Simulated scan of single mutants.
Amino acid sequence: MFAKPIPGHTTADVRGDVVVLLIGMRINRFRGVHHWLPVLLAMPRMLRELDKDPERGLLGHVLLTASPRTYYVVQYWESKEKLYAYAKAPDMFHHKAWSIINRKLRAGESRGHVGLWHETYVVPEGSHESIYFDMPAFGLGASHGVVPVEARGRRAADRFAHRRRQAAG
């Protein structure tokens, strides 16, 4: 089922910092399918595992294709600590997948067939902005929820500078 668009202008309702992981692969040699197909199939399995356990900290993700060779995922995390904890957890699929990949790389089996990459960003509160028009919640907005754009500022500069007020206590 497709999500319905939210009428008008909205923006992501982020509280605090934003943790973004870009992770992907590039098929360097299409003929080496037995080298790159397991890598391609590993990411959806990890995402399903994380979707079943929200306490691990993955807030949302978007799967993207940059070219017929290059696939990646934009992931939004609760914190860099939860991202690191998932990456190192011996009971999670990521740990097993990396063990297999590293073993193949050390043996020289997969070198040159598939490229892997990731970039992680911690974006401080007040250092990002978003706007969606007649869109269902998407990306950062799907991960953190959306609010009418006026809640964070009509202009991009206002949304960049937005900092959530601390509750009086």
Rank of each mutant, 00 (worst) to 15 (best):
F2M: 13
A3M: 11
K4G: 05
P7G: 04
G8V: 09
H9A: 08
A12K: 01
V14H: 02
V14Q: 02
R15G: 07
R15I: 07
G16M: 02
L22C: 05
I23D: 07
I23R: 09
G24K: 04
G24L: 01
M25A: 08
R26D: 08
I27Q: 00
N28D: 14
F30I: 11
F30G: 06
R31H: 12
V33M: 06
W36A: 02
L37N: 07
M43F: 11
M46C: 12
M46N: 05
M46H: 05
L47C: 01
R48V: 15
E49H: 05
E49N: 03
L50D: 02
K52N: 10
P54F: 00
R56I: 12
G60S: 01
H61T: 03
H61L: 12
H61I: 06
H61A: 11
V62W: 11
V62I: 14
L63D: 12
L63M: 14
L63Q: 15
L63S: 13
L63P: 03
T65P: 00
T65C: 13
T65Q: 11
T65W: 09
P68R: 10
Y72F: 15
Y72V: 13
Y72Q: 14
V73N: 14
Q75V: 10
Y76F: 15
K80L: 14
E81P: 01
Y84H: 14
Y84S: 11
Y84T: 13
A85F: 07
A85L: 00
Y86T: 01
A89D: 15
P90S: 01
D91A: 14
D91R: 05
D91Y: 15
M92L: 15
M92K: 15
F93I: 15
F93E: 13
F93P: 08
H95G: 03
H95L: 00
A97S: 10
W98H: 11
S99Y: 13
I100K: 12
I100G: 09
N102L: 05
L105T: 11
A107N: 08
A107V: 01
G108K: 08
E109S: 00
S110E: 06
G112P: 05
V114C: 03
V114W: 09
G115L: 06
L116N: 10
L116C: 06
H118S: 08
E119Y: 05
V122W: 03
V122K: 02
V123I: 05
S130H: 06
Y132M: 08
P136M: 04
F138G: 01
F138S: 06
F138E: 04
G139M: 07
L140N: 05
G141K: 05
S143R: 00
H144V: 02
H144E: 02
G145C: 08
G145Y: 03
G145D: 02
V146A: 06
P148T: 07
P148W: 06
V149Q: 12
A151Q: 14
A151G: 00
A151R: 15
R152A: 04
R154G: 13
R155C: 07
R155V: 02
A156Q: 12
A157T: 12
A157R: 09
D158E: 08
R159Q: 00
A161Y: 10
A161T: 10
A161C: 06
H162I: 00
R163F: 01
R163A: 04
R164A: 09
R164I: 13
R165N: 09
R165P: 06
R165T: 13
R165Q: 03
Q166R: 15
Q166E: 14
A167L: 14
A168M: 11
A168T: 11
G169Q: 11
